[in-house]
Design a protein around this nucleic acid. Sequence first.
RNA 1: GGUGACGUGACCGAGUGGCUAGGUAGAGGUCUGCAAAACCUCCUACAGCGGUUCGAAUCCGCUCGUCACCUCCA
Length: 504
Amino acid sequence: MQHPLSLYNTLTRRKDQFEPVNSPFVGVYLCGPTVYSEAHLGNARGPVVFDVLTRYLRHLGYTVRYVRNVTDVGHLESDADEGEDKMAKAARAQRQEPMQIAQHFVNLYRQNMLALGCLPPDIEPQASGHITEQISMIEEIMANGFAYEVNGSVYFDVPRYNAERERYGKLSNRSIDDQLAGTRDTLAGQDEKRSPLDFALWKKASPEHIMRWPSPFGEAPGEGFPGWHLECSAMSRKYLGNLSDIHGGGLDLMFPHHECEIAQCQGSHTHTDESRFWVHNNMITVDGTKMSKSLGNFVLLGDMFKGPTATLTQAYSPMVVRFFLLQAHYRSPVDVSDEAMQAARKGYRKLMNGLRLLEKLRLPEGTERAADTSAADAELRKLVADIFVGLNDDLNTARAIASLFNLVRKFNGFFANLTTLSAVSEAALEEATEAYRTVVTQVLGLVDEPRANAEQLLELTLSFYQEAKTAKAYDKVDQIRAALKGQGIVIKDLKTGVDWAYEE
RNA sequence: GGUGACGUGACCGAGUGGCUAGGUAGAGGUCUGCAAAACCUCCUACAGCGGUUCGAAUCCGCUCGUCACCUCCA
């Protein structure tokens, strides 16, 4: 399986050639949504990018296991001990079971991701279903001396880990001293943590806390819930082994989330960095500022698909959104605006129109093919190769799409005058159309969204049928009737006019 | 304060020592009953100032500006 795919690895801070731990198997983990609210455009970037990545890996011949988790245990609203769970808060506000909230938003999330053309992950584990795995991991970390229990809660001992095992900050490139310098000390007093850098692996549940599980920690075993970063480590390990191939998420998860994941894995019996490649996608911005829940400058996917929103004057279909996201490289920030979206829509349609053309690119009967097609073939093959150069270079979908546009211009040129196809060999043309089709639909996952309304087209056809009858042009009448029958539709001539029905 | 990005033509957005990015918008043309699409041509930029180099948007330095992470965040 020789190919030159390189990926930027945050851990090494450079583009590394991709090589699976156990070829041809590839384990990919993407940090999924916390399901206490609806997903916005920013939340879609990771899933779309990783969808393309897994599609491409499969295209290259790998057997991929793609895991995208669902966080339904909830993160605390603040870092104070009394902080409330996001899930619990939403549940309380709506007088529902936390799991009901979770299910509601999981359903919505899946619906949105499917609309965006993201293939369902192979495993979609929920944090709440992996409490025992998380507890085991905590016990391992404690046994290794990198965690301590206080009042039924368990914290990861960052300074000790940093001194005895691995540099805490190796992923996000920070030193523990810098981090200490930047810590607010206002909370230090009443904190159970030994160091402000320590993070919770397990929290004892306060009486009001709704989401809770039996806890083995503390003197009088009570109830609690897992810490913010543990689930991913536990679930990645369970489904992808001690060392997965690729672990991803938004740039904002790099620290502390992913840093903590590495620490947890290194500190447990896993003893690895959890994943070989750490891949981070950049943010979506609005007027140059990150789109985020807390800033309130977000556009919900559902709203975006349907119609005008506060930031956008019109609706943009899921495929247009997908194209928009892929037209920028995943590590660049991308700014959303009406102008950008409209440009994306046109670009998307251009690509789709090209797709529809492929079948029609046939040298007309009786046209002589050129004796020497080598120059034109080489040019065509160069355009095809360029697509893959882009994809292989850190999944640069922007470059790949630019190359596709170059190819589609070529196709359009051929189509305008099919005899010009005589310049290229059948084989080269076949390669080009096949590559175009495959990359657009299979790798980039961009499919045609039918925009024409079938009913209206049918009405139009019936009006022509009616006209033909009136003109007694029975050839035409029969022709229309036969064509519709081919679609399983029968015309009903009524005294009052014309109607149709599905053939029974 | 610490760390890390980035500033590309009207807009979006690749590239990162010499070679056309691409899309959108705009202008002209071909085609065409009209129109649209398509194709061709044009509009050809790299924040500023220095430096390195035969050669810099690309490397180095400084200045200005913007953003991200360090707290939940995709």
